[in-house]
Design a protein around this nucleic acid. Structure first.
Lengths: 342, 342
DNA sequence: ATGAAAGCGCTAACAG
DNA sequence: CTGTTAGCGCTTTCAT
């Protein structure tokens, strides 16, 4: 007796108005019911919600966003400043991104991701903010864009940045105390017996510069030498450069502080190829404590950044800024993790 | 004499109408000029574009999207089916995500990222598609959601999935030929002298099941044994499980095919701890050819997936589907990369 | 508790 | 070539 087709008379329900018609109420009521507002008769609400589910109806977020002047989307942008292609630090940023996705989801926000090359698009941050698609923005890494970020921060509250904290800066940043981390790394190398230290990595990015500065603090205080071995961050080139550095300084270095674990792993491979014993001849300390740090041979001694705490902090601070509050920066303590490379 | 404040009389220019007023034209003209449409006087356009730049004005994408019925955003969703937390395969997916971001940007699309736990939200895919925020969707990994994806594919064209291809499936997929990859891996192990093989990894996810099946093909054809060593994918547990497996099968296994490089690296560490020589006593082959594969000791022999090509394929196919075309799946060839572990 | 109506900011006919 | 107008789908007063 049943037709077997409940849908005979129905066109697809796409809009709140469609749903209102089949529910026999006005669009306004449907909107209120679906939004769970207080002033709707319980039965009416039930009926509307049921109908919505039955038809797989979901209100259009763009229309809703336009009307309410908010999008429910947070922008996450990764500026690729020093090296347009894959940064070697990608694995760190990508891990952070994963945590951010989880944290934002939990707070009911969607995540819009952009990778930008500031050199090609000087306007990257304003463009993102001005797009009207996002309620706030998280910048992953200051790269070489510190000044630009400072400028934007003056006129735009809902922005939080992952990176290094500098005395008196105006933008809200979350990040590890890189200088302290650098100090810990150098101290460990020295405690392990090293007297002629090297810093492996580009000192251009401000985070890395701070790590180097921290290592310098320790080195000069303890009266040991420290040279910088600048290294581009692209993975293919890095290996060669590292090998060249090692060759150039053969026998002159007995302790290496690598700016990231990824670099440290590469360095370890180069040392192995050169037949240099770690940690006996050269001690090595990394930074980040990525999963790879446990898997090298020998496992890496490194400076741990608490990525989960970082992501949590970024999102919580952003939420407060979205609510209009001016928040302070959050500096997280690094932690020395001793394994076997130093 | 200048006031030093050009902005005296100006309110902030937020809308196309604001800009139209100060340009002395109508909103329609501004819209056309900014969109670079043909039918606008060159001078008028110049003036409008100049004014827009000067005031840092950018049209609101949500409003534009609403009106044009397209958003300029592609959704990228990672279903976390088998393991709600960080999958060990994260590093692979994250790398793919990086490439996707670049490809989509290049095509003028923004990327909206979601990680979902299908177990907690059976409606994850419909919800994303129905949000009205995205023009199309890329699903990274079929996880255990094959059936659901098939269902959705019947009624929604602009979707492409990264994963395994199965004869006669209805959704458009891009991925490596996992079965062939598995075959190559097992053949390599055998060529390197192994006769008692093991597959290390969970065979639940369809990609991994195919890799295992491929290994079985080779093993049975060559008359060697193959056992499955199921391993959960969460990083903390994996290490212990692998060690337990190795202990349980001590001396019975002389060739291991790990489902991913990450697993292989973990396995290598466990073998080292157990004092088992690689590749002399046990040969080891991984899958993916992630950066880590070069950095282990010994470097991993592995099956390479061309991630860049995969990302490119995903985006190009999606673009064609957005244009209304029904596209075929794209199966990429895996490639054996011989290093030193087998 | 519900309906009617007015827009959010933009674009695309349709006129001129 | 440009202005005018009518919405895109939704939320929110303001009435009732």
């Amino acid at each position: 007796m049943a037709t077997g087709d409940d849908r005979t008379t129905r066109a697809r329900v796409r809009t709140i108005t469609d749903l209102a018609r089949i529910a026999g109420v006005s669009p306004g009521t449907v909107s209120r019911a679906l939004a769970g507002k207080s002033l709707v008769n319980a039965k009416t609400r039930e009926k509307i919600v049921g109908l919505a589910r039955e038809h797989g109806f979901r209100p259009n977020q763009m229309a809703s966003g336009l009307r309410r002047q908010k999008t429910g989307v947070i922008g996450v942008v990764i500026p690729l400043g020093h090296d347009a292609r894959q940064q070697i630090s990608d694995s760190f940023f990508m891990t952070l991104l994963g945590y951010l996705a989880d944290e934002l989801t939990q707070e009911g926000y969607d995540l819009m991701l952009r990778r930008v090359v500031p050199g090609e698009d000087a306007d990257w941050l304003d463009r993102f903010i001005g797009s009207g698609m996002i309620d706030g923005v998280i910048v992953i890494g200051q790269s070489d864009q510190f000044a630009l970020i400072e400028d934007v921060a003056d006129g735009y509250l809902p922005m939080v940045v992952w990176g290094n904290h500098k005395e008196g800066q105006r933008h809200c940043v979350v990040g590890t105390d890189n200088r302290l981390g650098g100090r810990l790394a150098a101290e460990r190398l020295i405690a392990a017996g090293a007297r002629r230290l090297a810093f492996l990595g580009d000192t251009g990015p401000i985070e890395f510069a701070a790590r180097f500065a921290g290592a310098e603090d320790a080195a000069s205080r303890m009266g040991v030498s420290l040279v910088a071995l600048p290294t581009l961050l692209s993975p293919d080139r890095a290996s060669e450069e590292i090998a060249a550095h090692l060759a150039a300084h053969e026998g002159e270095i007995d302790g290496i502080f690598a700016a990231t674990d990824t670099l440290a792993a590469l360095c370890l491979a180069a040392l192995r190829e050169g037949g240099i014993a770690v940690p006996e001849t050269v001690r090595l300390v990394g930074f980040d404590d990525l999963p790879i740090a446990r898997q090298t041979a020998p496992p890496l001694t490194t400076i741990r950044q608490d990525i989960a705490a970082g992501a949590h902090g970024l999102v919580q601070l952003l939420l407060r800024r979205l609510a209009g509050e001016e928040t302070e920066s959050l500096v997280l303590p690094p932690q020395l993790v001793i394994r076997q490379s130093a």
